[in-house]
Design a protein around this nucleic acid. Structure first.
Lengths: 233, 233
DNA sequence: CGCCGCTTGTCACACCGCTGTCACGGCTTG
DNA sequence: CAAGCCGTGACAGCGGTGTGACAAGCGGCG
């Protein structure tokens, strides 16, 4: 439905592939822009604000992996979905191990329907959500637009990771999440960090929330993970 | 870790494929149940609460796609992950399947390791207690999504094992289970623990429920085992 | 260029709740 | 009465979690 008309930026150094992808994707109802290397891609991202990036992992000068890491590091482009194009034989695990937070992989050669299917799956998964949301619960207020958190008016200082962690929990209350799932949804998919790292950031988040007396909302579910709830206990 | 032991429901009208899938998946540590058509699948979903659905897109009477749409439309089964099985060359249908809201698809013939990898990928990003079931009986409420138990609003603190034990009994009321059966369904199939251990956890569960006055729902059936019933006596 | 503060991921350690087992005693059944 | 069967308290071991510390990365600033 609303999936058609989405803008896709294809980044590949081989012109035939770019054209083939453009043809196939436009026939599926997407809008397509193209770039041959990373500098042009940077320009295109800044100018056209694509909804998804099709990124060849092997590019001249700056590799696709480096560029993906760069995009995932910047707050403004963190949520831009990326699908990596890899050549056959370049094991997924090899790419996965590089700690890029991209959303999916597809190996060349691939069929057009399969690519379209994966694009739609990723687009559906990505939260289009109203950009300027402001969630409030029990006096705790999380403003997505300004990335600021206040507790009954008092500002709460959080690091970037703690903020995203809190934002995730506040948007998904009354549910248990395992450490692995938290990593997937807060750190990004295909990023490898220790599961116990979640514990540490939970602790930092609690410590920041404690002076305001709402650290009890982040609850430990022993044997499983963590849960956000406004109810005590 | 927790990925093993997950329950997978295979829906396919061809018996050899069902059996092949069951064999392969069980060898990978999953629990497998099977259904040949959509009506049996509906029953199995309601009864066994699987963690993931392997759904053939081409089924007699009601197609897999229709069933998937039905599942994704209902709030209680919206989060139940679905992987579609398609035949080679039916990729366009796979696309339609993904539009329906399936989480992934895989084309027959496929390799077992690939299927297992896809399943684990989907399970990894799915939430626990996927189809957020919320069972209520006599004021006692067991919420799978938040993994929390409340008695007329008051939270009841339970350890992991007691929670699983109660969840099992609440989902299977009015029926006697031997200690061995309870061990199989709550502890897992290949775990060796003394049968009397069940007694101890029953006792702990009762003690946690006692302050709320509903410990009588866990009933002893002398010479056999235990039963959960809302009726007293 | 170097210094500094902030953030982040990881580790080691301590603690404590959970778990499985046992022994004892009360109770039912034959 | 004897023999099971079950509830209960106790207990040791383990494992999951909280916590402080630390080094590396990174950007800002002089």
């Amino acid at each position: 439905m609303g999936m058609q008309g989405k803008q896709i930026l294809v980044v590949d150094d081989e012109a035939p592939i770019r054209d083939m992808l453009r043809f196939g994707l436009e026939r599926s109802g997407f809008r397509v822009s193209r770039a041959a290397d990373v500098p042009s891609a940077r320009l295109a991202v800044a100018q056209t604000h694509p909804d998804l990036l099709l990124l060849d992992w092997m590019l001249p000068a700056v590799s696709g992996i480096e560029y993906a890491r760069e995009l995932k590091a910047a707050a403004t482009t963190r949520d831009l979905p990326i699908i990596m194009l890899t050549a056959r034989g370049e094991e997924e695990d090899a790419v996965r191990g590089l700690n890029v937070g991209c959303d999916d992989y597809i190996a060349k050669p691939f069929s057009m329907p399969e690519l379209v299917a994966r694009i739609q799956a990723v687009l559906r998964r990505s939260v289009p959500g109203g950009e300027s949301e402001r969630i409030r619960v029990n006096g705790l207020e999380v403003d997505a637009a300004s990335q600021r958190v206040t507790m009954s008016g008092e500002p709460v200082h959080l690091g970037p990771t703690e903020y995203r962690l809190l934002h995730f929990f506040v948007s998904h209350p009354e549910r248990v999440y395992t450490r692995e799932q938290v990593l997937d949804r807060v750190w990004g998919q295909n990023v490898y960090v220790e599961e116990r790292t979640v514990d540490v950031h939970i602790r930092r988040l609690r410590k920041a929330l404690a002076p305001h007396g709402c650290d009890a909302m982040i609850q430990t579910v022993r044997g499983t993970g963590y849960r956000f709830s406004e109810k005590h206990g």
